[in-house]
Amino acid sequence: MFPTIRVSFNGLEADTKYMVLMDIVPVDSKRYRYAYHRSSWLVAGKADPPLPTRFYVHPDCPFTGEQLHKQTVSFEKLKLTNNMLDKNGHIILNSMHKYQPRVHIVRKKDLSSTSVTNLEAEEFRTFIFPETVFIAVTAYQNQLITKLKIDSNPFAKGFRDSTRLTEYER
């Protein structure tokens, strides 16, 4: 996912184990389209049926409270897909739909299982940052955003070959 979401925590118990995870949920029941002539997003109808919500468990879990006080947790390895048959654990989204990432911190009492399938069965807190709402796309709708991603996203290195850039992008 680009840009990457990074979070810091405080106020945790130093010796307690925690899981940090993210899910991404629909914001509304609408489908969107980009209007080039207006440079804006417009509602284009009803949303496709919602997809199953998947949790992305941070790969460095479990953390101690002490570790979480000292570091920023980055979700740079989280991958998104629009493939409804995905078997790789990626977060599945419908293109042209609006989404809200949510970060969850789960206090683990029982470390025999580090998986989380049902948040309601755990002691947890959820954090929502309204500024992270986004519309999922399979292709960027604006050339400047495409250039920003190519220049900034470490996973877009293959697109940085200067012989492939247009005059506009150089």
Rank of each mutant, 00 (worst) to 15 (best):
K108D: 06
G89I: 00
K147P: 01
V43H: 14
M1Q: 04
D15L: 04
K46Q: 15
F2Q: 00
F124H: 09
Y56E: 03
T64Q: 01
L119K: 03
T146D: 08
F63I: 05
L21T: 04
M22E: 12
T163G: 01
V103P: 10
V137Y: 10
K46R: 15
F2D: 00
F124K: 01
M96Q: 12
P62S: 12
T166K: 05
H58F: 03
D151A: 10
Y99G: 07
K70N: 11
I5P: 02
V106F: 08
V57L: 10
D151S: 09
T64F: 02
S152W: 01
Q100G: 14
F9L: 03
L144P: 00
S162A: 07
T146C: 05
V25I: 15
Y34W: 13
K147M: 13
A14H: 08
S74L: 08
T81K: 03
S8V: 11
Y99A: 09
D23W: 05
K77I: 06
I150K: 07
I5Q: 08
K70Y: 00
T81E: 05
G65T: 08
G11N: 02
S39P: 01
L51P: 08
L111A: 08
L148T: 04
Y18D: 09
A139P: 00
F155A: 15
R31G: 13
F127R: 06
N94W: 10
S39A: 14
I91A: 01
Q67N: 03
I91T: 03
Y99R: 07
I145E: 07
N142G: 00
K17P: 02
I5K: 04
